[in-house]
């Protein structure tokens, strides 16, 4: 017997596949790009949801991982395209245009970064945690602006999408397939983690860290692990986002990006598996439809968000599949 939540999850994911397939038949490439954007942004949200939703770690600095993942792609690709090695001493390191190589690099770099930021930030709680994560992201943002090697304020263009064996990544539907596969992988990982012993410890640490410590689990280690996994998922999404736009600039590191990823999670439903996907989809649909009506669509988006916060707690998923009292 499928629960209502499983049914809603299945429908949402099926819709995300159907829209671009339909667009392919109708020859509407723009819709495919939109669906790809939704997949990638949703994946960034899935990463944040792990820390923010299940772990209760309200990070306002996930732009750091999204942006650094994006810059890893940009930097590796630009070195490879210009035939310049990234460094020669002590080891020879070349750039790359192979997506799998880039993903591994982005995941490693973001993992180390999340370990550093998390280790420091998790010493604090509550509002201090929100602000210190924000500050770390801002630090990278200003660094990216004032560091001229990779374009500084102007950003970095990648003229051709990086390659994946067997697929033509410049073809919209092929690139959608890659992004969608990543989103599914992130959703699967998130669902498996949340149901594992680790996930239970993480949720328990959110609800009552003292009790978790009393049964012999260090909340700090559990939360730090979750923060690192969260950062890696968001970082890989950032790497894909650069390939989607074939461009990366400091704006992906700005705190607006952190705010938007957070909006996806909350709009969709905090600590709900497909919440970030629903949130990202609603956000993009609003952007496209309100953007067509008014140049100042963000004003109306703001008003809508306030109504959601004040009156519709639980987001869209709370409306589609209300949780049974216990969650």
């Amino acid at each position: 017997m499928m629960s209502r939540e499983h049914l809603v999850n299945a429908i949402v994911i099926a819709l995300l596949v159907l829209v671009p397939l339909l667009a392919l038949v109708l020859d509407e490439p723009y819709l495919i790009t939109l669906a790809t954007r939704v997949s990638i942004l949703a994946m960034a949200g899935v990463g944040l949801n792990l820390a923010l939703g299940y772990g209760g770690l309200v990070s306002l600095g996930h732009a750091a991982f999204f942006g650094v993942g994006g810059y890893v792609t940009g930097i590796l690709a630009s070195h490879a395209l210009n035939y310049e090695p990234i460094m020669q001493t002590p080891w020879m390191i070349q750039g790359s245009t192979e997506m799998p190589v880039i993903w591994i690099c982005a995941a490693l770099v973001c993992g180390v970064l999340a370990l550093l930021i998390g280790a420091l930030s998790l010493r604090t709680t509550g509002v201090y945690f929100i602000m210190i994560t924000l500050a770390f992201a801002q630090m990278l943002y200003y660094f990216s602006i004032s560091w001229p090697t990779y374009g500084g304020e102007d950003g970095l263009s990648v003229y051709l999408r990086n390659t994946f064996p067997g697929l033509n990544t410049m073809n919209g539907i092929h690139f959608f397939a890659i992004s969608f596969a990543w989103l599914l992988a992130a959703l699967w990982l998130s669902s498996a983690l949340v149901q594992s012993r680790f996930g239970l410890a993480l949720q328990a640490a959110r609800q009552n860290p003292v009790r978790v410590a009393a049964v012999g689990i260090a909340p700090y280690k559990v939360q730090l692990t979750a923060f690192v996994i969260s950062g890696v998922i968001t970082g890989v999404a950032g790497a894909l986002y650069t390939d989607l736009n074939r461009f990366v600039s400091p704006s992906v590191l700005s705190w607006h990006t952190s705010g938007e990823i957070m909006v996806f999670v909350i709009l969709g439903g905090v600590a709900r598996l497909v919440g970030p996907l629903v949130g990202a989809a609603v956000f993009i649909i609003l952007e496209q439809s309100l953007g067509g009506i008014s140049e100042n669509w963000q004003f109306w988006l703001g008003a809508l968000l306030i109504v959601v916060v004040l009156h519709a707690r639980g987001g869209v998923m709370g409306f589609l599949a209300p949780e049974n009292g216990h969650a």
Binding site: V58, G302, V309
Partner: peptide, 30 residues
């Protein structure tokens, strides 16, 4: 807006005030 949020958790406050920024910035540009 804000007086309804004092008893809420920080997450709701962050989101609502982020939304207010969007409204103030776009409203001013408008």
């Amino acid at each position: 807006v804000l007086r309804r949020l004092y008893r809420r958790d920080h997450l709701d406050q962050v989101l609502a005030t982020f939304a207010l920024i969007l409204m103030f910035s776009e409203g001013t540009r408008w």
